[in-house]
Simulated assay, not measured.
Amino acid sequence: MGIADRWGLRAWLSAPGSLSKRLAATGRRYEVQVLRQTVAPLRLQERAALGLPPRGLTVVREVLLRVDGVPLVWARSAVHGDSLKGPWKAVNGLGSRPLGHLLYDDPRIHRSELRPRRVTRHGATWLQMAAQWREATGEDPPAMMQWSRNSVFTRHGKQLRVMELFVPDVALRDPGPIRRKTRARR
């Protein structure tokens, strides 16, 4: 991950907890811009991560995460349609609320290890992101926007995959210490 280190992205690619909270701590206004939420085919990495059969509906949500109006992260989440009737049904009603609110407020949800990955500029993920970025911002995405992290969240045996692709300039933002919400013991 040498290039990611040079840009200072390692801390962002490996940070535990909610990316939404971490980003929000770097500015005054945090927002989620929904670019697309639809039924779509899974990509090879998604299918492998979710261990899904070759058929079935998959719901994909793609968003831009902005701080003070500046887009910093393009994210894609994917969940098998069967899971939307069960443990992941709240994904359908998220709208522009952060997915992190759903993922980190439920102690029954478990997250896999974070997997950093360099996205190629000619691959389907980068091309999809670039088209949506241009439509949402009127500009090309940063050429060096190639580092992502992937993880899978599991609840009641059903999985949701999240991939987050970072603008290199996010490394210039320091969220400071992130305060974690403590849960009351019963």
Rank of each mutant, 00 (worst) to 15 (best):
M1E: 00
G2L: 12
G2Q: 07
I3K: 09
A4C: 12
D5N: 01
R6Y: 00
W7I: 10
W7H: 15
G8D: 00
G8N: 00
R10W: 03
A11D: 12
L13E: 02
A15E: 09
P16I: 00
P16F: 07
G17M: 09
S20L: 03
K21A: 01
R22A: 01
A24W: 02
A25I: 00
A25C: 06
R28G: 08
R28S: 07
Y30W: 15
Q33I: 09
R36F: 00
V39A: 15
V39D: 15
V39G: 13
A40T: 05
L42T: 13
L44H: 11
L44K: 12
R47S: 06
R47P: 04
A48I: 08
A49K: 03
G51I: 02
L52Q: 09
P53H: 14
R55Q: 12
G56E: 15
G56T: 15
G56I: 15
L57C: 02
L57I: 04
V59T: 11
E62W: 04
L64V: 04
L65Q: 13
L65P: 14
R66C: 15
D68V: 02
V70Y: 11
V70T: 05
V70P: 06
R76E: 03
R76G: 08
R76F: 07
A78N: 11
H80L: 06
D82E: 12
S83Q: 11
S83N: 10
S83W: 14
L84R: 10
L84P: 02
L84D: 04
G86C: 11
P87G: 10
K89W: 14
A90Y: 05
V91H: 14
V91W: 14
L94N: 04
L94W: 03
G95Y: 10
R97S: 15
P98G: 14
P98H: 06
G100A: 13
G100T: 06
H101S: 15
L102I: 04
Y104P: 07
Y104N: 06
Y104C: 06
D105C: 09
D105R: 14
D106Y: 14
P107T: 07
R108Q: 03
I109D: 08
R111P: 05
R111C: 13
S112Y: 07
S112W: 15
E113V: 10
R115E: 08
R118V: 14
T120V: 03
T120E: 01
T120S: 00
H122W: 13
H122A: 11
A124G: 08
A124C: 08
A124F: 05
T125G: 11
L127R: 03
Q128R: 15
Q132S: 15
W133L: 02
R134I: 02
R134N: 02
E135C: 11
A136M: 02
A136D: 00
E139W: 09
D140L: 04
D140I: 01
P141G: 02
A143I: 10
M145Q: 07
S148L: 12
R149E: 01
R149S: 00
N150R: 03
N150A: 00
V152R: 14
V152G: 12
V152H: 12
V152P: 12
F153D: 13
K158Q: 12
R161M: 13
M163S: 12
E164C: 08
L165C: 10
F166D: 09
D169H: 05
R173H: 08
D174F: 04
P175W: 01
P175I: 03
G176L: 06
G176V: 02
P177W: 05
I178Q: 04
R179S: 14
R180G: 11
R183I: 13
